[in-house]
Nucleic acid binder design. Structure first.
Length: 693
DNA sequence: GTTAGGG
DNA sequence: CCCTAAC
């Protein structure tokens, strides 16, 4: 996973140096890209159609439904088997066929506008989980407060939307691929999934949504028109030709994917199984989101953090152990795997079952991205069918068998005013889902079987109101035009800085936690810059999304982004190719996600350098950033370099988060000191390094 | 594996 | 942040 984390930001402009090595690198990339293109069709082209049903207050089922995490086998099933026989049938057509599709957003429950008791409990649960899952640190408290704040916000703000997805689980069954995933919780049973890429056509989602409108006691003054939707579970069954199978919850993060490549090698996408368990959420991953008209806050507990370390560490190993690859390939980050193109890995499926990862075995392709946690491992990874059909799979080698039974996103809680636009509704749902799935999807809205394309219409205008029958409301999950990177990338090690730092690092604010990033929206927005702006027909255009989730976006690299131009209407729904082509991307080394240094980090760095001096980056790392897995000593060295530079230029010329002048002054001082100190050291051998301090 | 420096 | 050379 860690490998997959990266920002696409500079990809386009990335220049390969003219060195021999670079040349090779370029070649590899080209090959990779080509390959990726061949397999562009992906599981994602499968469109998920969701028929929606909204129940009004009277109809609303017991709130108990709100609890997420429960399986809803009912929904899954058959739809899978049927659909896909006709590939030519447009998705839309399919979507209209209720018999065929079960994936529905069922608004089975109406929740009062006020915080639903159940919701509350969920929230609490969520919070607790967070706490539990986090290492001791200041983060916990901040998270809590953040959440609380969000909750309050929810109550106080008329126009807010809250989405809570808990325990995203994925139900996948594949034949060619083997996916085994287990939900975070220990007791969750692990299942093997087979994905028949050839068979994958549609991604269908079924979920239950509780939608209710009403004022809650406390908020009598609130707009009563607000609609609250709670989606208990979202399932994304997307297979074709499959016998229905029960869905099981899977934790995406823990999914491991193994692929087999007939051509040259087999690749496995695995998530490091050695991740720091400490950060693993107990079981449920919850996603909460509060979206106000102007403010969007997303809180996600999803953590894909772990694994970064492994990835980084293994980078080096890869080079040296190329020959050991067969045996230990799985341990290496995808990134490096490309180095082993000529590998002789056997074609046989490799299944790795560590940590509930899902395994994929395919012929031909994919390699990378799979590892990333937050993404839909199976789906993305598998080079599956293309909108057009299997045509592209002609080559036997490239064929992938994969079958995904369903993806389930446990709970979505949405509160939205009737005056909200359809677009905003779409966005909310989409963001929630994307967050859970890692992006790559957009949401369409169906009312009475008709797709509502005008995002500017209000729900009321569209016929979606709290007192109207909602049974005809449906949502569709469509591949987004551009790959959408996984959104928030949880810090690898939230709060790590604090840990183990006996030093003055106390000032460190908790490392950016998921919550924080979500709250700031920064992470999220960055990821989906376009969401807010325009989404005429398409809610999202992730083209520019910056950070691609680890493992997630191979797409951009592979030119998918361009290729994935939004397809006009109907067809598009059904088969738009899903840009997620993790498969290939792995090859191209993914750039790590950009993580600007915070002032706190800078301070820690400065302090460490003042004490240790320049030239001892490893020590600096150990001293001040030992817990920040994503900061390598090279990063620290680079940061110092930039700091020195920054300190030397005028404030107007500086960019990014302003660094306190005081720190810059210290940087200059330390730099000057150590610059002259180094020579002396060489002469004297070991002068006291702490003179400054 | 680290450092240092260019990109 | 990446990539390399040099150690």
């Amino acid at each position: 996973m860690a490998l997959q984390k990266r920002l696409d930001y500079g990809f386009n402009g990335y220049q390969v140096p003219p060195t021999p090595r670079a040349a090779r690198s370029v070649r590899r990339r080209s090959l990779f890209k080509k390959k990726a293109d061949d397999h562009q069709m992906c599981a994602f082209d499968l469109l998920a159609t969701v028929a929606g049903k909204l129940l009004l207050d009277g109809e609303s089922p017991p709130s108990a439904n709100t609890s997420s995490g429960k399986e809803r086998p009912a929904t899954v099933g058959n739809s899978v088997g049927k659909e896909e026989k006709d590939e030519n049938k447009s998705l839309e057509e399919k979507s209209c066929d209720r018999d065929c599709y079960e994936r529905n957003f069922l608004f089975t429950e109406i929740v009062s506008e006020a915080p639903n008791p159940n919701s509350c409990s969920n929230e609490l649960a969520c919070t607790q989980n967070d706490i539990i899952s986090r290492p001791a640190s200041g983060i916990t408290s901040s998270d809590c407060s953040e959440k609380i704040g969000s909750a309050e916000q929810l109550v106080n703000d008329d126009c807010k939307l809250s989405l809570g997805i808990s325990t995203p689980s994925v139900d996948i069954e594949s034949s060619g691929f083997r996916l085994s995933a287990n939900s975070g919780s220990e007791d969750e049973s692990r299942k093997d999934i087979k994905l028949d890429s050839a068979n994958i056509r549609n991604l269908s989602i079924s979920n239950k949504v509780s939608m209710c409108s009403s004022g809650h006691p406390e908020a009598s003054d609130r707009k009563s028109s607000a609609l609250v939707c709670s989606v208990d579970s979202v399932k994304f069954p997307f297979f074709r030709d499959h016998t229905p199978c029960g869905s099981f919850p899977v934790n995406r993060e823990n999914v491991k994917l193994v692929t087999r490549d007939d051509d040259d090698n087999s690749s496995e996408c695995i998530e490091p199984s050695t991740r720091n368990k400490a950060f693993k959420p107990p079981g449920d991953r919850r996603f909460r989101k509060f979206l106000a008209p102007k403010h969007c806050k997303i809180t996600s507990n999803v953590k894909d953090d772990e694994g970064c370390n492994n990835a980084e560490r293994s980078n080096y190993l890869n080079r040296k152990n190329a020959f050991k690859r067969q045996r230990s390939l799985r341990d290496y980050p995808f990134k490096k795997r490309k180095l082993y193109d000529c590998s002789s890995v056997s074609n046989s499926d490799e299944s790795i079952t560590g940590d509930g990862m899902f395994e994929l075995s395919e012929n031909g392709t994919n390699e990378d991205g799979l590892g990333s946690g937050p993404t839909l491992p199976g789906v993305n990874a598998a080079p599956t069918s293309v909108p057009g059909g299997y045509a592209s799979f002609h080559s036997r080698n490239s064929q992938v068998k994969l079958r995904i039974k369903s993806f389930r996103v446990p709970e979505l809680f949405i509160e939205i005013p009737e005056t909200a636009t359809v677009g905003s509704l779409k966005r909310m749902v989409m963001e929630a889902v994307n967050t859970v799935l890692g992006g790559g999807l957009r949401v369409g809205v169906l009312v009475q079987g008709k797709k509502i394309r005008d995002d500017n219409k209000t729900l009321l205008q569209t016929g979606i109101s709290h007192d109207s029958k909602m049974d005809t409301l449906g949502f569709t999950l469509e591949p987004s035009p551009a790959p959408s990177p996984i959104t928030s990338y949880p810090e690898d090690c939230p709060g790590q800085l604090l840990c183990d730092n006996p030093q003055p690092l106390a000032r460190y604010p908790p490392a950016p936690s998921i919550t924080q990033s979500a709250g700031q929206l920064g992470g999220h927005q960055d990821t989906h810059p376009d969401h807010h702006g325009s989404f005429n027909n398409f809610i999202e255009s992730d083209h520019d999304s910056a950070p691609s989730p680890p493992g997630m976006s191979l797409q951009r690299t592979t030119s998918n982004s361009k290729a994935l131009v939004p397809v006009p209407s109907l067809k598009q729904d059904a088969l738009a190719v899903l840009p997620l082509r993790k498969s290939k991307r792995s090859e191209s080394t993914q750039r790590r996600i950009r993580r600007p240094f915070t002032v706190s980090e800078v301070e820690a760095l400065v302090q460490a350098v003042e004490k240790l001096g320049t030239g001892r980056w490893r020590d600096v790392k150990l001293r001040a950033f030992d817990n920040a897995k994503h900061r390598t000593y090279v990063d620290l060295k680079d940061k110092w370099k930039t700091l020195v530079h920054t300190a030397g230029i005028s404030p107007q010329q500086r960019r990014g988060e302003p660094v306190p002048q005081e720190l810059l002054d210290r940087v200059l001082t330390a730099h000057a000191y150590w610059s002259q100190q180094q020579p002396k050291q060489q002469l004297k051998s070991q002068p006291d390094t702490c003179l400054l301090l």
